[in-house]
Design a protein around this nucleic acid. Structure first.
Length: 179
DNA sequence: GCCAACGTTGGC
DNA sequence: GCCAACGTTGGC
């Protein structure tokens, strides 16, 4: 990666100390053709393996910064109504993406091997559907103007969401977080 | 289908 | 390490 990340650095790992680590929040894009929020709710365990990420920055978010339980804005992309369609949560640590070893997969990576995997992913669990919160509406709220998703030219499929952005989105969705 | 933005690749 | 070519993303 050539330039310093424009995103806040990951919080320190919670290895040695007993501090409670703030829950972090993410926006994860998926094409509803692959796994819409409705499909996610019907899957066994209501959990999907987030395979197919082939961008180092997105991979590094999963590998270095995500923790089980982190909140996820479930975003439908490349579809008639792009936008947030539900809430989810991180359900596993990052682990090797099996599709990189599968020559028949569109995500096959000939430079990867089980001994030296390049691509990782987490599992993501359904939390709830929400109303559709589309791009135009997201852009219309000044408190969301800084969202990584809304940056011109943004293409990252996984972006961090600040606590303030998370709370603002939930307020727009009329969702009250459990205590 | 268009196209702007951006990441990756590979020759030099 | 530069940088042009190419591929991909994703809203429109």
């Amino acid at each position: 990666m050539a330039s310093p990340s424009p995103f806040p650095s990951p919080l320190p790992c919670d290895g040695d100390d007993d501090r409670v680590v703030e829950p972090r929040h993410w926006l994860m894009k998926i094409e509803p053709d692959e796994c819409s929020i409705d499909e996610l709710a019907r899957l066994p365990g209501q959990t999907v393996a987030w395979t197919g990420v082939r961008n180092y920055q997105a991979r590094n978010f999963m590998r270095d910064a995500m923790r089980i339980g982190d909140g996820v804005l479930y975003y439908h992309s490349s579809c008639p109504e792009p936008g947030i369609a539900g809430l989810a949560e991180v359900a596993s640590p990052a682990y090797p993406d099996a599709t990189q070893f599968d020559a028949a997969s569109p995500y096959f990576d000939p430079k990867a091997s089980p001994a030296a995997p390049r691509w990782l992913h987490v599992d993501v669990r359904f939390v709830r559907r929400t109303r559709q919160l589309g791009l135009a509406e997201l852009r219309s709220h000044p408190e969301l103007a800084g969202m990584a998703l809304l940056r011109p030219g943004n293409r990252l499929s996984i972006t961090p969401v600040t606590l303030a952005e998370w709370q603002a989105v939930l307020a727009l969705l009329g969702v009250t977080e459990p205590a």
